[in-house]
Design a protein around this nucleic acid. Structure first.
Length: 247
DNA sequence: AATTACTCCAACCGCGCTTTA
DNA sequence: ATAAAGCGCGGTTGGAGTAAT
């Protein structure tokens, strides 16, 4: 394809139509075949990006609302530059949108606020721990994943959890993944299971928690709606954890 | 009115992880 | 077991639009 001259730069309306029709006909996936099937002189990466960031039907356009901005700030505080995860909590917003919005609108605002805070902090005598950014790991584990080295068989979090006995995290070869789960769920040292933690018969993991009142009703409703739409288990856990971690 | 500086966002690029052959 | 292909992510850039001079 390269010798035919792969187009770069802004997409034309005609290209958008071709790509949209192709996706409508064949569905999403197999991006490497999309340029050929759509009749586009674009690389598959460019096609994927155009679809995910612009053409996908459920993408929300226009200004970020106040509650969306609040959520971005809170999640960024917890997750750092994990734009796709943050965007996953904002229905209709893409990771690119969130990233751009952060870089152009929020990063300055936040750094200014941090400046003010550090002025206040310098006047205080008590040391306050810096925010610990949670580094999430992949929601699925392939058999060869570094989190499951030496583990055979099914690869989803859920099935990995099913393998784990009620209370104890077993030693090798699952030790590494177990350690990770522990580090996520607690400080990794406390052996006692949290009262609110439960293991269902199906092996599903859950945290029954009283959600702190840091979100408004509107946000909570949105999250519940999103939940119904079928969020990944990781996303749900992450949010629970976010909320728990919030002071 | 012309030029320069700045902002913002769509798109590109490289990297790392996963999947497939 | 390994190499190649596929995929997704985050950082960065180019350029169009706007504000300032």
């Amino acid at each position: 394809m390269e010798h035919l001259g792969v187009r770069k730069g802004a997409w034309t309306e005609e290209e958008d139509i071709l790509l949209t029709k192709c996706i409508e006909k064949f569905g999403v996936g197999k991006w490497s075949r999309v340029p050929l099937m759509a009749g586009l002189r674009r690389c598959h990466k460019s096609c994927r990006l155009r679809w995910l960031n612009y053409l996908k039907p459920d993408i929300k356009r226009g200004e970020f609302k106040e509650d969306e901005v609040d959520l971005i700030i809170k999640l960024h505080k917890l997750l750092g530059n994990r734009w796709s995860l943050i965007a996953g909590r904002l229905p209709g917003r893409t990771a690119n949108d969130v990233k751009n919005y952060w870089n152009s609108h929020l990063s300055k605002r936040i750094s200014m606020q941090k400046g003010e805070q550090s002025q206040i902090k310098s006047m205080e005598t008590t040391a306050i721990a810096t925010t610990k950014v949670i580094r999430p790991q992949p929601r699925t584990f392939s058999p060869n994943s570094k989190w499951l080295s030496g583990t055979a068989g099914s690869s989803t979090i859920q099935t990995e959890l099913q393998k784990m006995p009620n209370n104890a995290m077993m030693g090798s070869p699952q030790e590494e993944s177990a350690l990770w789960w522990k580090s996520l769920l607690g400080d990794g040292e406390e052996e006692e299971e949290e009262e609110d933690t439960w293991w269902s018969k199906s092996g599903k993991f859950g945290l029954e928690v009283e959600l702190p009142q840091i979100f408004g009703v509107e946000e909570m409703e949105k999250m519940e709606k999103k939940e119904e739409e079928g969020l990944g288990e990781w996303d749900n856990m992450l949010l629970d954890f976010d909320l728990l971690s919030e002071p």
